[in-house]
Design a protein around this nucleic acid. Structure first.
Length: 254
DNA sequence: CGGCGTGTTCAGAA
DNA sequence: CTTCTGAACACGCC
C-alpha cells in the first residue's frame, strides 16, 4: 500500500495524535523491524520524551524527538502502516508507542523495511543522502529525470524522484498518455507529465491513499482482462523498471 | 505446492 | 559509468 499519499496519511496520524504527548513506553513486539537500534536502546531513548512535528520525504516518515538530536525514521515497505488505537493490538503490530490516551502502532506484515533511530541530523542526512527530491516538491522534471531511461523506470527510482510507487507511476503515465517504455529523452515537453503527477498526488493525498476507483487505472489493473477506463481498450501487462506494469495500448502508444 | 506482490538492495550482465 | 534484470528479504493470498 504505502506510496507517497499513504505515508502522508501516516504523517497526519502521528501529527494529530502523538505529537506533544509524553511517550510512556515503547513495546517492541518483533525486533526484526528494528534496523540500527536495539529494543532496549529504542525504549531507553524514547521513554519520557515527546515527538516533535513529523515530516515526510518521499516514502520516509521522519519524526524528531523534542529537544533531542535524535529522529525516529519509519519506512513502510510494501505492507506497513501506522495506527492510533486502543485495545487489543493487531497481530502484525511490530512496535507500539504507548501514550496516556492511546497507542501509536507500527504495523507491518512482511517486515521488508522498518524503524531506525538517527542519532543526530548528520546521521539523518547520511541515511537520506541517496534520496531524490520529493515528488510533490520537485521542480521541472527535465532537471531530474535521466534522458536515457525508460519513463516508468525513472519515475519509480527513489534516487531520482522520491515518493512514487508502482501503482502511482502507472496511473500517472496513463493519465499523461505516455507509454511507460518510452525514453525520457523522447518526450518533447515534460511539463504536462509534472502537472499530471502533481494533480494525481494531490487527489490521492486528499483520499489518504491511492484510490481504487473505477475511473482510475488502479481500479482495473487486477482484473484478468481489465479495460481502459477512458477508451475501453483491453489493458496490456508487462514489466518495466523491474516492476509489473499496466498500460493502455490505445491511449499510450509506444 | 507454486506463483504473485503497492518496496528496497545487491550482484551480475549488457 | 549507466542501465537493466533477477534474486533476496517475509508473509499472506490465490
Amino acid at each position: 500500500m504505502p506510496e507517497l499519499p499513504d505515508v502522508e496519511g501516516f504523517r497526519r496520524v502521528l501529527a494529530g495524535h502523538a505529537v506533544g504527548r509524553r511517550i510512556e513506553d515503547v513495546v517492541v513486539r518483533d525486533a526484526q523491524v528494528l534496523r540500527d537500534v536495539s529494543a532496549a536502546g529504542l525504549r531507553k531513548t524514547l521513554t519520557g520524551r515527546k515527538f516533535g512535528e513529523p515530516r515526510r520525504l518521499g516514502k520516509w516518515l521522519l519524526t524528531p524527538l523534542k529537544g533531542g538530536p535524535e529522529t525516529v525514521v519509519l519506512h513502510f515497505g510494501m505492507t506497513g502502516s501506522l495506527h492510533w488505537e486502543t485495545g487489543e493490538p493487531h497481530r502484525h503490530d511490530r512496535v507500539i508507542f504507548c501514550f496516556a490516551g492511546g497507542e501509536l502502532r507500527y504495523r507491518d506484515m512482511r517486515k521488508l523495511q522498518g524503524l531506525r533511530l538517527a542519532a543526530d541530523d548528520e546521521a539523518l542526512e547520511r541515511l537520506l543522502a541517496g534520496t531524490g527530491p520529493d515528488a510533490l516538491e520537485v521542480g521541472p522534471l527535465q532537471d531530474v529525470l535521466p534522458g536515457r531511461r525508460q519513463l516508468k523506470a525513472a519515475l519509480v527510482d527513489q534516487s531520482v524522484l522520491a515518493g512514487l510507487g508502482n501503482l502511482l507511476a502507472d496511473e500517472i503515465l496513463w493519465r499523461a498518455k505516455l507509454n511507460p517504455y518510452r525514453k525520457v529523452s523522447s518526450v518533447d515537453d515534460l511539463g504536462p507529465l509534472r502537472t499530471t503527477m502533481r494533480k494525481t498526488l494531490r487527489e490521492a493525498v486528499k483520499a489518504g491513499r491511492v484510490p481504487p476507483r473505477p475511473s482510475w487505472l488502479t481500479g482495473r489493473r487486477d482484473e484478468p482482462s481489465g479495460s481502459c477506463p477512458r477508451c475501453g481498450t483491453t489493458l496490456r501487462h508487462g514489466r518495466a523498471g523491474g516492476r509489473s506494469t499496466v498500460w493502455c495500448p490505445h491511449c499510450q502508444p509506444g
